[in-house]
Design a protein around this nucleic acid. Sequence first.
DNA 1: CGCCAGGTTGATTTCGCTCAAGCAATGTGG
DNA 2: CCACATTGCTTGAGCGAAATCAACCTGGCG
Lengths: 244, 244
Amino acid sequence: MGREPCIFGQPDCRSCHVFKHTDWQVLEGADLAALSDGVTRREYQPGEAVYSAGEPNRGIYCISGGALGIKKTDAEGNAILVHLAYPGETLGYRSFLQGGEHKTSAEAFEPSFVCHIKSDAVRRILGHNPKLGLQFLGRATRELEEAHEAMLQSSTLSNRARFIHLLALLLRRHGRRGPDGSGSIHLPLNRRDLAGMIGTRHETLSRIIGRLEAEGLANFSGREVHVANIGALLGEIGADAPPC
Amino acid sequence: MGREPCIFGQPDCRSCHVFKHTDWQVLEGADLAALSDGVTRREYQPGEAVYSAGEPNRGIYCISGGALGIKKTDAEGNAILVHLAYPGETLGYRSFLQGGEHKTSAEAFEPSFVCHIKSDAVRRILGHNPKLGLQFLGRATRELEEAHEAMLQSSTLSNRARFIHLLALLLRRHGRRGPDGSGSIHLPLNRRDLAGMIGTRHETLSRIIGRLEAEGLANFSGREVHVANIGALLGEIGADAPPC
DNA sequence: CGCCAGGTTGATTTCGCTCAAGCAATGTGG
DNA sequence: CCACATTGCTTGAGCGAAATCAACCTGGCG
């Protein structure tokens, strides 16, 4: 048989295991019922797109399991990864609100479960319940801050320092950390996407990884990474600054 | 005598000349009155800060005249300009919503008039009128898109191409354009800030400018710029792409 | 077996940063 | 009115980081 991309019926948001971490947690009563009525859950395999840039918006998505990447691509096909999305996050609210096409693509990095919510339902709730809009607003401002932080980093830090930052972040999210300051991780991304996250080419990333291994700071074997001393790794980037 | 930084009393938002371009345009009746009650207008001279990174948020701001720059600075003092703000725009809503300190600084580039709105007033309106929150949400998503666009550009385009983009944008906003495709502008920023907008050093920008002059694409004399053929300038960046 | 995608490595060159000096305009105090 | 500091901008030399082009390796798969 093998895997079939299963489409589930209407799950009930009230009993969803991530409900209290979502933007919808502020809803009650009729709004909550209306939400559940507009929801369909579906599984996505790695590499599969939830939506792609250029498509018209068809509603909003909410992640209930897995990990997704939000990519932006230019006319020449260069792609950067602008965000990693995890369970509880809302996707596609931007194009939903601006009423146009998706400007980014959302792609599963692991087998993921994503709920689709009908436009009508969201629009109706947004129109009379200020709380939901404020939740979205909070999400948007946090993402904006993340983007500004990335802009600052990309113009002040070296590629090497940015990659170390990224690695530390992925270790926190996806990794297993030992009590001795070590950590292991199965990377959810291939080298190209990893390079896209720090705004460089995959060849350059390959060299950076080679250097980190030579210095004994980390072991890479395909997507498996082992870091003996996370503190030493992070010390690297502090030491990048002038010893003033 | 000379100029004194004048603080005006409470202007009436309903009669403000930019009112219909602001986020507040959706307010009516009592909300509008409450807004006007919470407002103070004040003039800022070039270089003066409306708020600075690290300060606690004390309310939000609305620009009624001039031009401001939103800067983000890191620990080493490197600064980038993340946004140019014009009349009608709302400032400081991010830290206001997240309840913390300002993560960016807002600085006048021209003599500017900015209204301050008391936190209480905004919080009260946001709590019961969904429309205002949705306006803010729209603003946040547009800024987010702008930030993502900048991230993509900074990792795919050369400094030269980014500067040409910026120049074209400033020409649209601040410049006078002739019917023959020419354009003139008095730059609202010094070289350092200009460099900060494209994520490079001022020396590098200076060289880029020198090259553009040598190629006859633009004339720079201090902050005065004249472009003979905007089309040719923009053609440059299209031509940067491989002639495939 | 050949093909292909993902990854590594090498050689070369371009780009932009750093450090440093120089220059013009402006302001300041004696 | 002159010596002097200050600020904003430009220029030069040298260097290092990273992009580019290209070859090559590896494991999976029809």
